[in-house]
Amino acid sequence: MMAEVQPDIEYQAHLAEGHFMIQRGIASGVHHFYPRAIEPGTGRALEWVEASGKGKVHSVTVISRKPPLEPYNVVLVDLAEGPRMMSRVDGIDPAAIRIGMAVTARIVEEDERQFVVFVPAEEA
């Protein structure tokens, strides 16, 4: 029984080792995020693959806070592989983040937990 995927633990372990991994249906070839024990829709097996880290901002909101706290952004990013995830874009004034903007994934650590944020993609 323990041959089943343990989605959260495995995802987090990959991040801790510096890899942003997402899942792909072995039969369907379709990529998925967030991590699951079975493929959504089909219920079939999934494998881990490293995400390219490339994505585009799908939507953005800037959350205001009582000064002196700074506002911060929350975005949805469409990964190049297809899935969408919530994240934030660092390294840019939140007011300058635009829908459609190309971004690149980075793994950061806060409160002893690694997670994925994005930065504006390097100009080609």
């Binding site: 909101t61 911060y72 929350v74 806060e110 997670f115």
Partner: peptide, 19 residues
């Protein structure tokens, strides 16, 4: 997969749809 980004839900989610 959402809470690391501190969306002040529900408003942040609706704001993303509005935007």
């Amino acid at each position: 997969f959402e809470f690391p980004y501190r969306p002040n839900n529900p408003v942040a989610s609706y704001a993303l749809a509005a935007s």
